[in-house]
């Protein structure tokens, strides 16, 4: 089922690559290149799924996720963390802040698409 996916990542090339994959699979994509912009986009666009980077210059992905989970309108949106900082503690923290899935970069596109498709609010 086509979904509206919000990608929050400070790397434009990553946003572009994810966008291509998701659009080809039939999903609608909205984008944000910082944590703050991501929160604003989530409030304005009410996506079905959010793909979230962790290391970002303004506020990091954990904080974005915490704020999403604290907002009753956004709390139910599944968050897929996609991070190049794949250590034992980062994935643990990603789940603890309310992330549904943690995928390490470099990712397999199949894993991203599976996660988006199986993510249920």
């Amino acid at each position: 089922m086509p979904k509206k996916v919000l990608i929050i990542d400070d790397d434009h090339a990553i946003i572009a690559a994810l966008t291509v994959r998701l659009r080809v699979a039939g999903h609608e994509v909205i984008q944000a290149s910082s944590g703050q912009a991501g929160l604003a986009q989530a409030q304005a666009g009410l996506p079905d799924v959010i793909i979230l980077d962790i290391r970002m210059p303004d506020i990091d992905g954990y904080e974005v996720c915490r704020q999403l989970k604290a907002d009753p309108r956004l709390a139910a949106i599944p968050v897929i963390f996609v991070s190049a900082n794949a250590t034992e503690t980062t994935s643990q923290e990603a789940y603890e802040t309310g992330g549904a899935v943690f995928i390490a970069k470099p990712y397999e596109p199949k894993d991203i698409l599976n996660a988006v498709e199986s993510a249920a609010a």
Partner: peptide
Amino acid sequence: HDFRTPLTVIKE
């Protein structure tokens, strides 16, 4: 981290 980000872009 800094290696993996560009690697992801190249690979993707």
